[in-house]
Computed example of a mutant assay.
Amino acid sequence: MFPPPTDPWSVPDPTAPLPASAPPVDAGVVVAQIGEIGVTATTVHTPAGAIPLAGSTWQVSDFWHTEQKTPTWAIVMAVAGFCVLTVFSLFFLLVKETIYRGTVQVTVTNGQRQYVARIPVTGEPQVQYVHQQVNYVRSLAAL
């Protein structure tokens, strides 16, 4: 942007003209990583081969399931409390926690080429991150 100062204490001239445009993005730099899919400025790199980014369509599907599980601490408390309060310690076994597991399926298509990535997720923040990445790549594909 500005030439490096010769004097470490000098300040660049604020009236100097700025470049007309930002430097071009290198076509080989990965700008987004979605599972095993790497996206550069012009190409979508998949394990099955390269797909052109321009004109590609992206689809995201969430596949969730939940599990109810007795946490380890509740089992330990029930066993330890059994020696002291036999009946009341069994109430610890009624404690349940919900575990979310699943995958987010990302499909990229361009003409006859298609690739499907299944990304394992364990929480809502991971799902939101994948959706944000896909929306970003959709905006790049529309350019």
Rank of each mutant, 00 (worst) to 15 (best):
F88L: 13
Q105G: 07
P14F: 08
G123S: 06
A54Y: 06
G81F: 03
F63W: 05
P4I: 12
P8A: 10
Q112S: 15
I51F: 03
Q105L: 08
P19W: 12
V137M: 10
F82M: 07
V39K: 03
I34S: 01
A74P: 06
G111E: 11
V127W: 04
Q128E: 09
V30Q: 08
I51V: 05
Y100K: 13
H131I: 07
M1A: 12
R113D: 09
F2D: 14
S139V: 06
R118A: 11
I34M: 03
G28Q: 14
Q132M: 15
I34R: 00
W9N: 09
D26N: 15
T43M: 15
V106K: 00
A117T: 03
S10W: 00
A142P: 01
K96W: 11
R101Y: 10
V39Y: 01
N135W: 08
F63V: 14
S10L: 01
S56K: 04
F91Q: 00
S89G: 09
Q68A: 13
V104H: 07
Y100M: 08
Y100I: 05
P125M: 08
T42L: 13
I37V: 15
G28D: 13
P14I: 11
G123I: 02
A54M: 13
N110F: 01
P17Q: 09
A141V: 07
V76H: 04
D26I: 09
F2N: 06
Q133T: 05
L94Q: 05
T43L: 10
L85Q: 10
E124Y: 06
W9Q: 09
Q114S: 04
G35D: 14
H45M: 13
A54E: 10
T6D: 10
V39W: 05
V76A: 13
T72L: 07
A20N: 05
A27M: 10
D13E: 13
A48N: 09
I51H: 02
A50R: 07
Q133I: 02
W73D: 01
Q59G: 10
I99M: 05
N110E: 07
T72H: 05
A27D: 09
A117F: 05
E36F: 01
V11I: 07
V137K: 06
T43N: 13
L93P: 06
D62R: 12
L85G: 12
L93F: 10
G102C: 10
P12F: 09
P19C: 08
I119Y: 04
A117K: 04
W58A: 11
T72V: 10
A20P: 11
V84N: 01
G55E: 14
H65C: 00
T57F: 02
V79D: 02
V31P: 00
L94A: 11
A142S: 09
H65I: 00
A22N: 08
T6C: 00
Y100E: 12
F82I: 02
G35I: 02
M77V: 02
P47H: 13
T70E: 06
P14M: 06
P47N: 14
F92G: 04
H131S: 04
Q114T: 06
I99H: 14
Q59S: 10
T66M: 05
S10P: 00
